[in-house]
């Protein structure tokens, strides 16, 4: 009733401060809690119809539009310190020995996609026809998305599960994932996994890639780089 004396409590500021404190502290525990939760709800997610759960991918690009793949005109060039420069058509690339793997993709900004099924070519199989010169120590991946570029050392490219992938989850690589081919190196953060690769240049000097020119580490090992 109006005028009835009643005890007033300052819940407004408590709600504000409480939610702010939980939110800010989640910067330190959010990811671990989220991983626990997704593990716990994994069976539930699997039971939901496909497409119901967000895939977890975010599409990062640096140019104003994504490159278009034209199967008829597309070529992958392999050049630089090689005895036999290559210009492979899409079909020629697909005829190289096929490798498959399931691996987790980690972005340096904190999101991950578990159990991605990749198919593609191991770098050993890809490079052998080009006969790299003994002095070649670095692979530079030039994207059709100009000016994106990044590098791997020859040793990194020969890691057991590094590949140039042309299929993801049983389908040809989609445009937003780098069609027709992208680098996959699960040991490193996503920015080393160059999309829309159109040229691989072998060299003996390492030039920092797109994000490395902007302060990210050249060797993007999971959990041991970029302050993470």
């Amino acid at each position: 009733m109006p005028g009835e004396p009643s005890e007033t409590k300052l819940y407004g500021r408590r709600a504000f401060l409480g939610v702010s404190a939980v939110g800010l502290s989640s910067l330190f525990w959010g990811k671990a809690a989220w991983e626990q939760l997704t593990r716990a709800t994994g069976p539930l997610q699997a039971a939901l119809p496909a497409g119901f759960v967000p895939s977890g991918w975010r599409i990062y690009t640096v140019a104003s539009s994504m490159p278009q793949f034209d199967r008829k005109t597309w070529r992958l060039r392999i050049e630089g310190l090689v005895d036999e420069p290559q210009s492979l058509s899409y079909d020629e690339l697909r005829s190289l020995p096929r490798a498959e793997q399931v691996s987790t993709f980690h972005c340096v900004t904190g999101w991950s996609v578990q159990n991605v099924h990749w198919a593609g070519v191991r770098f050993g199989d890809l490079l052998s026809a080009a006969s790299p010169a003994p002095s070649a120590s670095v692979l530079t991946f030039v994207s059709a998305e100009i000016p994106y570029v990044d590098t791997l050392t020859i040793e990194q490219a020969h890691l057991r599960d590094a590949m140039l992938a042309y299929e993801m989850d049983g389908k040809p690589l989609a445009r937003e994932h780098g069609a027709p081919v992208r680098v996959v190196i699960p040991e490193m953060y996503g920015y080393k996994n160059v999309k829309w690769v159109q040229r691989i240049v072998l060299g003996d000097k390492l030039e920092p890639g797109y994000w490395e020119q902007r302060g990210y580490d050249v060797d993007a090992w999971l959990g041991h780089s970029n302050g993470l």
Binding site: L27, W34, V108, T109, G110, N226, G227, L228
Partner: peptide, 24 residues
């Protein structure tokens, strides 16, 4: 605002990079 600013600075300086910023 705080998480957005951290995403922005995190792209420029890894001292501002937290694994959970984007999740928040």
């Amino acid at each position: 605002f705080v998480s957005g600013l951290l995403l922005w600075y995190g792209e420029r300086d890894n001292r501002f990079r937290f694994a959970s910023t984007i999740l928040l």
